[in-house]
Design a protein around this nucleic acid. Sequence first.
DNA 1: CAGCTCGGTTGAAACGATTCACTTCTCGGC
DNA 2: GCCGAGAAGTGAATCGTTTCAACCGAGCTG
Lengths: 336, 336
Amino acid sequence: MFSVGIKDVANLAGVSVGTVSNVLNHPTRVNPATHERVSAAIAKLGFVRNAAASQLRAGLSRSVGLIVLDSANPFFAALARGAEDHAATAGVSVLVGNSGEDSAREETYLDLFEEQRVRGILLSPVGDITPRLERLRARGIATVLVDRHTRNSAFSSVAVDDVAGGRLAAAHLLSSGRKRIAFVGGPLHIRQVADRLEGARQALRNVGLPDPEILATRSMTLPAGQEIGRQLAARGPQDLPDAIFAANDMLGLGLMQGLLMNTGLRIPQDIALIGYDDIAFAESALVPMSSIRQHATELGRRAMELLLEESAAEGEYVHRQLISTPSLVVRASTSS
Amino acid sequence: MFSVGIKDVANLAGVSVGTVSNVLNHPTRVNPATHERVSAAIAKLGFVRNAAASQLRAGLSRSVGLIVLDSANPFFAALARGAEDHAATAGVSVLVGNSGEDSAREETYLDLFEEQRVRGILLSPVGDITPRLERLRARGIATVLVDRHTRNSAFSSVAVDDVAGGRLAAAHLLSSGRKRIAFVGGPLHIRQVADRLEGARQALRNVGLPDPEILATRSMTLPAGQEIGRQLAARGPQDLPDAIFAANDMLGLGLMQGLLMNTGLRIPQDIALIGYDDIAFAESALVPMSSIRQHATELGRRAMELLLEESAAEGEYVHRQLISTPSLVVRASTSS
DNA sequence: CAGCTCGGTTGAAACGATTCACTTCTCGGC
DNA sequence: GCCGAGAAGTGAATCGTTTCAACCGAGCTG
């Protein structure tokens, strides 16, 4: 296992180690002809820079950490892609950790990243770990929070405006002439759910309508939606809302199944339905389902921008809280 | 940005740097009382070991790389979890890269991992990159392949036996009395599809039945399944197969929608249906769908075991090809 | 032509942990 | 009281890069 080092390259190319290092890190400083010779030597020997030595001397690494709550969740998958894309343009690589909502795993990844002296960390936190983040900052590691409303302006953050999303969904239903709107989702103390409901309330209030009927669920899953769907279908037609806003697409898809199976109901003629998240399944449902799309990729890109900006800044840095507004995707389930 | 180093710890604790290093790496070699004193100093100063320096001197890093084809795919998400779990027990951390089936990204991650001098790489390759892997091995970086039938025994690999899975699915349909079985999937040249079909053929041949009817699709998506489902529903009852084996769950779910919507057909009474992959949606479909489950988490664990074993081995190592047999999950869509 | 500038290049001194040959101490055996 | 063995601790050398002050020659200026 002989390792070829910068020294071997220098010998073969007939230059000093300093020059080889310059070829690697400051290509403009070296004469094109020399550059050529050194590159040839590198290729010939199959030299690969030792990141450990490089980081040790340079002090900072060429990577940033990203810890997501659930890597299987399409929202975070898209966010990660956006973050990686932007990092790539800056020549920075991303180490992805999946906390799985487990604060012990989160802690482990933070330790790892701290040892690696990453430039910064993009984090969707499990609990409140402000103290830990303060410590990291003291060490020169910046942190940007994802998907939290941090009133605390001591950190930069990016988040999705769920109230605006809720408004958008309800306003769309109203604009297509619906009047009796029901909200399905839960548990209601989850911030996302509460915010989406609040948005819907605002939209109704704006046109002088009372609060929507609320059908609370224990979880945001397909079966929970099916259950509510069956209950609704069992009601008499006159007791039925003319539109439903589901707090996420899984619920929405379950509702659709429950509403359509073995009933004469039609979507959207008898009842309109809109979901939230715009997951891939929404488009290919029995009746393609309208939804609210969060721009996760874009969000990830912006978050990485903030992170790199902060980590590059000298001294005081003014933190920023970015709020992204989701957008409406109209499909057959609401277009009469 | 003052960095506290091992030296500062040594000063505070009144010992030499060597002893601090021993506390960190060979705790048994040091007297418990000293250990105590050093630990206290570490805690007081908030010392965090510099991974770069550590790796530089020690020569090997405490991490391995993992490159998956698609991190959003639940199969790979589960695989990654299994791999991480096992790595954690060995005190090794996993750097996850997502190639997204793009060989340029794959290449980038391989470069990164090579620079980092990782212990080994777990890889689900995009194309055939044996030469590159040979080079890595020459550098002392072991590689274990995922989800490929490498006849080439020069590398260890783990894979799922799709032929066995196909056999399992078809045999299950036969055992519940079905005789006219159709296979839905495509394109047929994809290895997974071809293998699953081959397995079904074998099961039929075993009981003296002819090959199944094949309904080829352009892709393995929900819409493709819906399309085939509608076509089937349009046939006369006497032309209908009495069971369908879908090459994956997405197709299966699409089929279910197409078969049930606005037709009098019932599942499983008129037609049984089994999918493949056992994704979360299979369980909560209109009719809970039987499927074939691949033990991805277990597979990831085993793959990591192989990788760590090989990277720890001195000199010659005998590579192993692990084949994991999937298992049958019976739900309402096939149990009459 | 002396004095400057400037692009290109040099080589030795870091960076911070690990290692290992060596010292020091302690204790038991004879 | 001497010797040897083993446990505990020491500290200088080392890993492979990057950095930076110094150097070199060529071209320009007054």
